[in-house]
Design a protein around this nucleic acid. Structure first.
Lengths: 254, 254
DNA sequence: TCAAAAGTGTTCTTATTACACCCATGG
DNA sequence: CCATGGGTGTAATAAGAACACTTTTGA
């Protein structure tokens, strides 16, 4: 205790790096899973597509930076972001070493109005299957977050965030199919999802469709949150492996 | 393209932080899950217990830094480390802002010889349930990694890393019970684990125990790796919720 | 011979899978 | 009246849960 000042090394003795946050915002639109991208108007990667991300400030927690940067570049506000992982290879940024922390989120595309600004000349929802190239190591980051989403979908209910307030069972099935990249059986899907007591039948139907109109549902909010908190395993994929095992997740974070 | 030099901002214009890696090394010993801790011989937190972690160097990838720092502080070599998450709140380090990336690993305690050095005056395996206080925000980091381990155990086989080469079914059951913090039914546990074709009966028994000696098993390596790669759900806990659903994981990383 | 842990099966219940036809609407 | 997607049930199989007694060893 008496020599505290003597043994403490100043932080300036250590290597310091700039660091950024990058956001992967997933949205679902019709039958496609999409990601929000910006077109850069700054070098490096001028005029190239990238994830909306930028530098963290000195007096800003990482999580706060992710929220701020997302809003500055795309206009998206009040989005819940979850940290996924950190990319810190020495050569990942052409201008020098930059460490980046990746965050992800799920949003309903129709609820947000995208306004590009700051270093973004454009901000657009792009189908995930059409993305083959991105700035920096953003394609790796996207892959990593997509893996996380696929995993998460099996352990938590997902959809509230990605679907409009009223949706059909087919919409929900298509969402699961898009994320899991599988085909599901309509009857089994419905049986399972309805047995969970997670949906409320709105006693309304679609209008103006050229076929029998589908019933509309919404999520039963308190039940949805209970499932989120308890983290019940919630696998809707089928025909996989005969070695499947019953599972339950206790944890909240994935 | 013509004005690339003009629009590119130098990285020095942005805030730079020192950053560290912290390692959570889980081990299993008898019936207890343990974590490798060091006693610090440097301020801040002089003489306090902490996770083995230190600053990253300029020309070092994050993953490489985690491996190096672990060896320097505890003598553990050739340990596979997996990134868990990054802690970057502005006030997490008393000397100023330091961002830390947490890594975790599972090892068989008896396979490693712990040698404290560098800023570690001691390095010891400590029972997880006996840890109530750690330096910095290391208790939060530990909690976060323990959650991850609990999740992982349900989605991948675990044990190869934590158990000695030869073990009994009861050892394996106790490992699962320690991680999941539940009691399992002996018959159901054995039925399930043996049906997976993951273990090899060594046709040997324990020696020198004051009770009927148990058979010894080892992991069937190629099968084990196949399970790791395919990520089959592998839940051995019971008596949880009537809402359990059959699940399968496709992803490798957790 | 006693204490301690090993080892072993069955029954009941619940969840998953596979699968095909009629219905309601707009054009 | 036709094309389009909506909506529905059952039977067979597989997996999980609950549960108690006998065996083997060393002390």
């Amino acid at each position: 205790m008496h020599n505290q000042k003597i043994t403490m090394l100043p932080l300036d003795d250590f290597f310091k790096s700039p660091f950024t946050v990058d956001n992967i915002i997933f949205g679902f639109d019709q039958d496609d899973l999409k990601v929000l991208l910006i077109k850069r108007k700054e070098d490096p990667f001028l005029n190239k597509w990238a994830l909306p991300g930028y530098f963290v400030k000195e007096n800003e927690n990482l999580d706060d930076a992710a929220v701020r940067v997302l809003e500055e570049l795309t206009g998206l506000k009040d989005v819940y972001l979850e940290q996924v992982s950190t990319f810190g290879n020495i050569d990942r940024h052409p201008s020098g070493r930059v460490i980046t922390v990746a965050y992800y989120s799920l949003v309903a595309i129709q609820d947000y109005n995208v306004i590009p600004s700051n270093i973004a000349s454009k901000a657009e929802w792009v189908k995930i299957k059409d993305i083959s190239e991105l700035s920096f190591d953003h394609l790796d980051i996207l892959q990593s977050c997509f893996q996380r989403l696929k995993r998460k979908v099996r352990v938590e209910p997902i959809g509230f965030e990605l679907l409009p307030a009223k949706f059909t069972l087919t919409d929900l099935q298509h969402l699961y199919e898009a994320i899991l990249e599988v085909k599901l059986d309509k009857r089994n899907f419905r049986k399972k999802i309805l047995s969970m007591d997670l949906l409320v039948d709105l006693e309304e139907v679609q209008e103006g469709v050229a076929h029998r109109p589908a019933r509309l549902y919404k999520f039963y909010e308190s039940k949805y949150e209970e499932f989120l908190a308890k983290g019940l395993v919630f696998d809707l994929s089928e025909g996989k492996s005969k070695q499947s095992k019953i599972s339950r997740s206790v944890d909240t974070d994935i």
